[in-house]
């Protein structure tokens, strides 16, 4: 058989992987000795890891807390009372970050996919669309996000254009995030589309599917699955960058923390906001790792399409 074995994480040889002695099989004396040896090694490794971690932590904590500036650092950055005080506002601000991130993520995916598809269109009729998509991605991948934020958040309202009704600042902030991230995500999708072997398209066309049908039913489903890990990575980044809308004066987690610090120059609220952001991104990062590991494409068998 020509098939390669499925890529799967090989089970580490461990004592527990010994098959139950169902068919009357008993491990030989030699095998029992090997297993005992491996078990012993495993226990020793675990103990060593725990001990070395504890020692390192103790040394670090000792070094930091015994340093002369530590009491002031603790008071300014790690004040428990200040943390409790500022937590409600910062958490309420974070809820805004989460909503901005979720809404932007949906729009970014749709817009990015549309841009990527525009760039794959062939034929002279589509030349302007291809050019537009290419120029768009080049522009917004090159512009610093903060510049787009400032231009949209302060520049556009200042124009007070006729017909452009007043929008809350957060809308401009979200728009800036969408403009920048859709350019990135379009490139991710385009790479995914190009990674599908041309023979797949040829097979689809040979069955009578039109170019658009081949894209819709054969190329895109494969492309999208392949780019899920890099896309999730971009969303981790989007989640963090949603904090940048605070420069427009939107009261998000960071802005709320800033307001709270302004009263007494205690910076603990920033630590609180940072802690909350990390708590948000860690699950998404772990999800990305998990999807990437599970993927390997051929390992995804099963499940309806």
């Amino acid at each position: 058989m020509a098939r390669a074995p499925r890529p799967s994480t090989p089970a580490a040889p461990s004592a527990s992987s010994v098959p139950a002695a169902g068919g009357g099989w008993q491990p030989s004396e030699l095998q029992r000795q090997r297993l005992a040896y491996r078990r012993g090694r495993a226990v020793r490794s675990a103990v060593t890891a725990v001990l070395s971690t504890l020692v390192l932590l103790a040394v670090l904590i000792g070094a930091v807390t015994s340093s002369p500036g530590w009491p002031r650092v603790r008071e300014t950055f790690f004040s428990w009372d200040k943390a409790k005080d500022s937590f409600p506002e910062v958490a309420a601000g974070l809820w805004l970050n989460i909503r901005v991130m979720l809404i932007c993520a949906v729009v970014v995916v749709l817009l990015g996919l549309a841009l990527a598809i525009l760039r794959t269109l062939r034929g002279p009729v589509f030349f302007p669309l291809r050019m537009f998509a290419a120029a768009y991605t080049d522009l917004f991948r090159g512009l610093p996000l903060i510049l787009v934020l400032l231009l949209l958040g302060f520049g556009v309202p200042a124009l007070s254009l006729a017909g452009v009704s007043f929008q809350p600042v957060v809308v401009y902030g979200g728009a800036a995030l969408v403009l920048t991230y859709s350019a990135y995500v379009a490139e991710v999708f385009r790479a995914g589309i190009e990674s599908v072997h041309p023979s797949q398209r040829a097979a689809a066309r040979s069955l009578g599917l039109s170019n658009a049908q081949a894209l819709r039913y054969v190329v895109l489903p494969q492309a999208i699955r392949r780019v899920v890990p890099p896309l999730l990575n971009d969303f981790v980044s989007l989640q963090k960058d949603s904090g940048l809308i605070s420069i427009l004066g939107v009261i998000d987690a960071i802005r709320a923390a800033q307001i709270s610090t302004a009263t007494d120059f205690n910076y603990t609220p920033y630590i609180v906001a940072g802690f909350l952001f990390v708590c948000l991104t860690i699950p998404l990062t772990r999800l990305t790792d998990w999807v990437a590991r599970r993927q390997g494409w051929y390992g995804t068998g099963g499940g309806a399409v």
Partner: peptide
Amino acid sequence: ADRVRSRVGIVFQAFNLFPHLS
């Protein structure tokens, strides 16, 4: 061309089945 192709079957050396479909 799509009409013509749908009347002619082609099978490739590398099968070219769609891996994401049953």
